[in-house]
Protein backbone atom coordinates (compact mmCIF):
# COMPACT_ATOMS: atom_id res chain seq x y z
CA UNK A 1 0.00 0.00 0.00
CA UNK A 2 1.29 3.35 -0.91
CA UNK A 3 -0.17 5.30 1.95
CA UNK A 4 1.95 7.99 3.45
CA UNK A 5 -0.52 9.09 6.10
CA UNK A 6 -1.24 6.83 9.04
CA UNK A 7 2.14 5.35 8.18
CA UNK A 8 1.21 1.76 7.71
CA UNK A 9 -0.03 1.17 11.22
CA UNK A 10 -3.12 -0.32 9.69
CA UNK A 11 -0.96 -3.21 8.62
CA UNK A 12 -0.70 -4.74 12.03
CA UNK A 13 -4.06 -3.58 13.27
CA UNK A 14 -5.89 -6.84 12.87
CA UNK A 15 -2.99 -9.19 12.47
CA UNK A 16 -1.32 -8.97 15.79
CA UNK A 17 -2.57 -9.92 19.17
CA UNK A 18 -1.24 -7.04 21.18
CA UNK A 19 -0.93 -8.83 24.45
CA UNK A 20 2.52 -9.70 25.54
CA UNK A 21 2.26 -13.29 26.69
CA UNK A 22 5.82 -14.19 26.09
CA UNK A 23 8.39 -13.36 28.74
CA UNK A 24 11.28 -11.19 27.61
CA UNK A 25 13.85 -13.99 27.35
CA UNK A 26 11.59 -15.89 24.97
CA UNK A 27 11.27 -12.83 22.76
CA UNK A 28 15.03 -12.48 22.55
CA UNK A 29 15.49 -16.15 21.88
CA UNK A 30 12.88 -16.07 19.14
CA UNK A 31 14.56 -13.04 17.56
CA UNK A 32 18.07 -14.44 17.72
CA UNK A 33 16.91 -17.83 16.48
CA UNK A 34 15.37 -16.19 13.43
CA UNK A 35 18.09 -15.84 10.81
CA UNK A 36 16.21 -13.21 8.83
CA UNK A 37 15.69 -11.16 11.95
CA UNK A 38 19.33 -11.46 12.96
CA UNK A 39 20.54 -10.46 9.49
CA UNK A 40 18.19 -7.51 9.17
CA UNK A 41 19.09 -6.47 12.69
CA UNK A 42 22.74 -6.35 11.63
CA UNK A 43 21.91 -4.32 8.52
CA UNK A 44 19.91 -1.84 10.58
CA UNK A 45 22.71 -1.65 13.14
CA UNK A 46 25.22 -0.82 10.38
CA UNK A 47 23.02 1.99 9.08
CA UNK A 48 22.54 3.32 12.60
CA UNK A 49 26.29 3.28 13.24
CA UNK A 50 26.89 5.01 9.91
CA UNK A 51 24.34 7.64 10.86
CA UNK A 52 25.79 8.26 14.30
CA UNK A 53 29.42 8.39 13.15
CA UNK A 54 28.80 10.15 9.83
CA UNK A 55 31.15 13.09 10.61
CA UNK A 56 33.90 10.71 11.76
CA UNK A 57 33.52 8.46 8.73
CA UNK A 58 33.68 11.44 6.37
CA UNK A 59 36.69 12.84 8.19
CA UNK A 60 38.45 9.49 7.94
CA UNK A 61 38.00 9.50 4.17
CA UNK A 62 38.75 13.19 3.99
CA UNK A 63 35.48 14.02 2.29
CA UNK A 64 32.63 16.38 3.09
CA UNK A 65 29.11 16.57 1.68
CA UNK A 66 29.23 20.32 1.07
CA UNK A 67 32.57 20.98 -0.63
CA UNK A 68 32.14 21.32 -4.39
CA UNK A 69 34.99 19.95 -6.48
CA UNK A 70 34.41 21.76 -9.78
CA UNK A 71 37.91 20.77 -10.79
CA UNK A 72 36.70 17.16 -11.02
CA UNK A 73 33.91 17.98 -13.46
CA UNK A 74 34.36 18.41 -17.21
CA UNK A 75 32.87 21.09 -19.45
CA UNK A 76 29.90 18.85 -20.24
CA UNK A 77 29.24 18.70 -16.48
CA UNK A 78 30.23 15.01 -16.48
CA UNK A 79 32.51 13.92 -13.64
CA UNK A 80 36.09 13.34 -14.70
CA UNK A 81 36.83 10.72 -12.04
CA UNK A 82 35.19 7.43 -11.21
CA UNK A 83 34.99 5.88 -7.77
CA UNK A 84 38.39 5.97 -6.12
CA UNK A 85 39.92 5.86 -2.67
CA UNK A 86 39.56 9.62 -2.44
CA UNK A 87 35.96 9.59 -3.54
CA UNK A 88 34.66 6.05 -2.92
CA UNK A 89 31.33 6.63 -4.69
CA UNK A 90 32.71 9.14 -7.20
CA UNK A 91 31.52 12.72 -7.43
CA UNK A 92 28.27 14.29 -8.56
CA UNK A 93 27.94 15.69 -12.06
CA UNK A 94 27.94 19.50 -12.35
CA UNK A 95 28.83 20.29 -8.72
CA UNK A 96 31.49 17.66 -8.15
CA UNK A 97 30.31 17.09 -4.59
CA UNK A 98 31.49 13.88 -2.98
CA UNK A 99 28.82 11.18 -3.28
CA UNK A 100 30.11 9.01 -0.47
CA UNK A 101 29.81 11.86 2.00
CA UNK A 102 26.38 12.56 0.55
CA UNK A 103 25.38 8.96 1.08
CA UNK A 104 26.69 8.76 4.64
CA UNK A 105 24.93 11.96 5.62
CA UNK A 106 21.81 10.71 3.83
CA UNK A 107 21.67 7.84 6.31
CA UNK A 108 22.16 10.29 9.15
CA UNK A 109 19.34 12.63 8.15
CA UNK A 110 17.00 9.85 7.16
CA UNK A 111 17.29 8.01 10.47
CA UNK A 112 17.42 11.18 12.56
CA UNK A 113 14.24 12.58 11.06
CA UNK A 114 12.47 9.22 11.23
CA UNK A 115 13.43 8.63 14.86
CA UNK A 116 12.39 12.11 15.95
CA UNK A 117 9.11 12.00 14.04
CA UNK A 118 8.31 8.47 15.18
CA UNK A 119 8.99 9.37 18.81
CA UNK A 120 6.77 12.42 18.58
CA UNK A 121 4.02 10.48 16.77
CA UNK A 122 4.11 7.66 19.28
CA UNK A 123 4.08 10.04 22.23
CA UNK A 124 1.06 11.91 20.85
CA UNK A 125 -0.68 8.69 19.88
CA UNK A 126 0.00 7.10 23.26
CA UNK A 127 -1.29 10.04 25.29
CA UNK A 128 -4.39 10.65 23.17
CA UNK A 129 -5.11 6.95 22.73
CA UNK A 130 -4.83 6.25 26.46
CA UNK A 131 -6.96 9.26 27.31
CA UNK A 132 -9.63 8.30 24.78
CA UNK A 133 -9.66 4.66 25.78
CA UNK A 134 -9.60 5.03 29.54
CA UNK A 135 -11.58 8.22 30.09
CA UNK A 136 -14.11 7.61 27.30
CA UNK A 137 -17.00 10.05 26.96
CA UNK A 138 -16.33 13.38 25.29
CA UNK A 139 -12.53 12.95 25.36
CA UNK A 140 -12.97 9.81 23.32
CA UNK A 141 -15.32 11.55 20.92
CA UNK A 142 -12.92 14.45 20.32
CA UNK A 143 -9.93 12.18 19.78
CA UNK A 144 -11.87 9.96 17.39
CA UNK A 145 -13.01 13.03 15.49
CA UNK A 146 -9.44 14.32 15.26
CA UNK A 147 -8.30 10.98 13.92
CA UNK A 148 -11.02 11.07 11.27
CA UNK A 149 -10.00 14.60 10.37
CA UNK A 150 -6.36 13.67 9.86
CA UNK A 151 -7.29 10.58 7.91
CA UNK A 152 -9.19 12.67 5.35
CA UNK A 153 -6.33 15.10 4.67
CA UNK A 154 -3.98 13.94 1.89
CA UNK A 155 -0.54 14.05 3.44
CA UNK A 156 1.37 14.84 0.24
CA UNK A 157 -0.70 17.86 -0.71
CA UNK A 158 -0.69 19.33 2.78
CA UNK A 159 3.07 18.84 2.93
CA UNK A 160 3.40 20.53 -0.45
CA UNK A 161 1.44 23.55 0.73
CA UNK A 162 3.45 23.84 3.94
CA UNK A 163 6.69 23.57 1.99
CA UNK A 164 5.59 26.27 -0.45
CA UNK A 165 4.55 28.60 2.36
CA UNK A 166 7.83 28.09 4.23
CA UNK A 167 9.76 28.58 1.03
CA UNK A 168 8.18 31.93 0.30
CA UNK A 169 8.02 33.37 3.77
CA UNK A 170 10.76 32.12 6.10
CA UNK A 171 14.19 33.63 5.61
CA UNK A 172 16.32 33.19 2.55
CA UNK A 173 16.73 29.86 0.85
CA UNK A 174 19.91 28.24 2.07
CA UNK A 175 20.17 30.31 5.23
CA UNK A 176 20.59 28.56 8.57
CA UNK A 177 17.23 29.81 9.85
CA UNK A 178 15.48 28.50 6.75
CA UNK A 179 17.07 25.10 7.01
CA UNK A 180 16.18 24.94 10.67
CA UNK A 181 12.56 25.88 10.03
CA UNK A 182 12.31 23.32 7.24
CA UNK A 183 13.69 20.59 9.47
CA UNK A 184 11.32 21.34 12.34
CA UNK A 185 8.35 21.67 9.98
CA UNK A 186 9.17 18.34 8.34
CA UNK A 187 9.42 16.46 11.62
CA UNK A 188 6.20 18.06 12.85
CA UNK A 189 4.38 17.23 9.63
CA UNK A 190 5.50 13.60 9.75
CA UNK A 191 4.50 13.34 13.40
CA UNK A 192 1.17 15.09 12.81
CA UNK A 193 0.20 12.55 10.19
CA UNK A 194 1.79 9.58 11.95
CA UNK A 195 0.06 9.64 15.33
CA UNK A 196 -3.39 8.55 14.20
CA UNK A 197 -2.54 4.90 13.71
CA UNK A 198 -0.85 4.68 17.09
CA UNK A 199 -3.76 6.41 18.79
CA UNK A 200 -6.29 4.03 17.23
CA UNK A 201 -4.22 1.07 18.29
CA UNK A 202 -3.65 2.23 21.86
CA UNK A 203 -7.26 3.29 22.25
CA UNK A 204 -8.53 -0.13 21.21
CA UNK A 205 -6.03 -1.83 23.48
CA UNK A 206 -6.88 0.32 26.49
CA UNK A 207 -10.60 -0.18 25.88
CA UNK A 208 -10.14 -3.92 26.21
CA UNK A 209 -7.68 -3.62 29.12
CA UNK A 210 -9.82 -1.32 31.25
CA UNK A 211 -12.49 -3.98 31.65
CA UNK A 212 -9.89 -6.56 32.67
CA UNK A 213 -10.19 -7.85 36.17
CA UNK A 214 -6.70 -6.69 37.15
CA UNK A 215 -7.71 -3.10 36.44
CA UNK A 216 -10.91 -3.59 38.41
CA UNK A 217 -8.79 -5.07 41.19
CA UNK A 218 -6.58 -1.99 41.20
CA UNK A 219 -9.65 0.22 41.50
CA UNK A 220 -11.04 -1.88 44.35
CA UNK A 221 -7.71 -1.58 46.14
CA UNK A 222 -8.04 2.18 45.84
CA UNK A 223 -5.29 2.97 43.32
CA UNK A 224 -5.48 6.45 41.82
CA UNK A 225 -6.29 6.97 38.15
CA UNK A 226 -2.72 7.97 37.36
CA UNK A 227 -1.38 4.88 39.11
CA UNK A 228 -3.75 2.71 37.10
CA UNK A 229 -2.80 4.44 33.84
CA UNK A 230 0.96 4.40 34.36
CA UNK A 231 1.60 1.38 36.59
CA UNK A 232 -1.10 -1.01 35.42
CA UNK A 233 -1.95 -0.07 31.84
CA UNK A 234 1.28 1.35 30.45
CA UNK A 235 3.34 -1.82 31.04
CA UNK A 236 0.71 -3.68 29.03
CA UNK A 237 1.15 -1.31 26.10
CA UNK A 238 4.74 -2.39 25.42
CA UNK A 239 3.75 -4.31 22.34
CA UNK A 240 1.96 -1.42 20.58
CA UNK A 241 4.84 0.90 21.50
CA UNK A 242 7.55 -1.45 20.26
CA UNK A 243 5.59 -2.16 17.10
CA UNK A 244 4.89 1.52 16.69
CA UNK A 245 8.59 2.17 16.49
CA UNK A 246 9.59 -0.85 14.49
CA UNK A 247 6.91 -0.42 11.85
CA UNK A 248 6.56 3.35 12.09
CA UNK A 249 10.22 4.21 11.45
CA UNK A 250 10.42 2.53 8.02
CA UNK A 251 7.15 4.18 6.99
CA UNK A 252 8.49 7.55 7.99
CA UNK A 253 11.80 6.95 6.21
CA UNK A 254 9.71 6.20 3.12
CA UNK A 255 7.50 9.24 3.58
CA UNK A 256 10.48 11.54 4.06
CA UNK A 257 12.23 10.17 0.98
CA UNK A 258 9.04 10.64 -1.02
CA UNK A 259 8.81 14.27 0.04
CA UNK A 260 12.45 15.02 -0.81
CA UNK A 261 12.00 13.24 -4.10
CA UNK A 262 9.15 15.60 -4.89
CA UNK A 263 11.28 18.53 -3.79
CA UNK A 264 9.10 19.36 -0.81
CA UNK A 265 11.39 18.00 1.88
CA UNK A 266 14.46 19.71 3.23
CA UNK A 267 15.72 21.32 0.07
CA UNK A 268 19.25 22.07 1.22
CA UNK A 269 20.33 18.83 2.87
CA UNK A 270 21.79 15.86 0.99
CA UNK A 271 19.02 13.41 1.88
CA UNK A 272 18.66 10.25 -0.17
CA UNK A 273 15.38 11.40 -1.65
CA UNK A 274 16.96 14.66 -2.78
CA UNK A 275 19.89 12.76 -4.27
CA UNK A 276 17.54 10.52 -6.24
CA UNK A 277 15.84 13.64 -7.53
CA UNK A 278 19.16 15.20 -8.52
CA UNK A 279 20.41 11.99 -10.10
CA UNK A 280 17.36 11.26 -12.20
CA UNK A 281 18.30 13.49 -15.18
CA UNK A 282 21.84 12.01 -15.17
CA UNK A 283 20.66 8.48 -15.13
CA UNK A 284 21.75 7.47 -18.64
CA UNK A 285 25.20 8.95 -18.25
CA UNK A 286 25.82 8.09 -14.62
CA UNK A 287 23.51 5.32 -13.34
CA UNK A 288 25.60 4.79 -10.19
CA UNK A 289 24.64 8.26 -9.00
CA UNK A 290 20.99 7.15 -8.88
CA UNK A 291 21.49 3.60 -7.69
CA UNK A 292 23.45 4.32 -4.53
CA UNK A 293 20.67 6.22 -2.71
CA UNK A 294 17.96 3.98 -4.21
CA UNK A 295 19.64 0.80 -3.00
CA UNK A 296 20.39 2.30 0.39
CA UNK A 297 16.77 3.31 0.81
CA UNK A 298 15.42 -0.06 -0.28
CA UNK A 299 17.84 -2.05 1.86
CA UNK A 300 17.26 0.07 4.96
CA UNK A 301 13.47 0.08 4.68
CA UNK A 302 13.38 -3.62 3.91
CA UNK A 303 15.64 -4.46 6.85
CA UNK A 304 13.60 -2.27 9.19
CA UNK A 305 10.38 -3.91 8.02
CA UNK A 306 11.75 -7.42 8.33
CA UNK A 307 13.01 -6.63 11.80
CA UNK A 308 9.63 -5.18 12.74
CA UNK A 309 7.82 -8.23 11.42
CA UNK A 310 10.13 -10.58 13.26
CA UNK A 311 9.66 -8.54 16.42
CA UNK A 312 5.91 -8.74 16.05
CA UNK A 313 6.06 -12.49 15.55
CA UNK A 314 8.34 -12.87 18.55
CA UNK A 315 6.06 -10.74 20.72
CA UNK A 316 2.98 -12.61 19.65
CA UNK A 317 3.26 -16.31 20.42
CA UNK A 318 -0.08 -17.01 18.73
CA UNK A 319 1.21 -15.94 15.33
CA UNK A 320 4.56 -17.57 15.86
CA UNK A 321 3.15 -21.06 16.09
Amino acid sequence: MTDASGFGFARFDAEADLELDAPRQTVWRALLGNKVAAASGMVVAMFVLTAIFAPLICAAFGVSPNDPHTELVGFDDQPLVGPSLHHPFGVAPATGKDLFANWVYGARYSLLIATLAATAAIAIGLVLGMAAGYLGGWVDRIVSWLIDLFLTMPFLLVAAAVAAILDATVGRRGSGAFQHAQFVALVLMLAAFGWTGMARLVRAQVLSLREREFVLAARVIGCSTSRILFRELLPNLTVPIVLGFSLGIPSIVTAEATLSLLGIGISTLPTWGATIRDAEPWWRADPGYLWQPVLALIVLVLALNLLGDALRDALDPKIRR
Binding site: E213, F214, L216, A217, V220, E232, N236
Partner: peptide, 24 residues
Protein backbone atom coordinates in the same frame (compact mmCIF):
# COMPACT_ATOMS: atom_id res chain seq x y z
CA UNK B 1 -13.65 9.59 50.86
CA UNK B 2 -14.07 5.99 49.92
CA UNK B 3 -10.35 5.28 49.59
CA UNK B 4 -9.63 4.59 53.29
CA UNK B 5 -12.77 2.44 53.51
CA UNK B 6 -11.60 0.30 50.58
CA UNK B 7 -9.19 -1.39 52.99
CA UNK B 8 -12.10 -3.07 54.71
CA UNK B 9 -13.91 -4.11 51.56
CA UNK B 10 -12.06 -6.25 49.05
CA UNK B 11 -12.88 -8.36 46.05
CA UNK B 12 -11.74 -11.66 44.56
CA UNK B 13 -12.27 -12.17 40.85
CA UNK B 14 -13.26 -15.03 38.63
CA UNK B 15 -10.58 -15.30 36.00
CA UNK B 16 -7.17 -16.31 37.31
CA UNK B 17 -5.58 -15.09 34.07
CA UNK B 18 -7.05 -11.63 33.60
CA UNK B 19 -7.28 -10.73 37.29
CA UNK B 20 -3.50 -10.47 37.57
CA UNK B 21 -1.44 -7.96 35.62
CA UNK B 22 0.85 -10.14 33.51
CA UNK B 23 3.59 -7.52 33.57
CA UNK B 24 4.01 -7.51 37.36
Amino acid sequence: DLRPVRKDLQMIFQDPVSSLNGRH
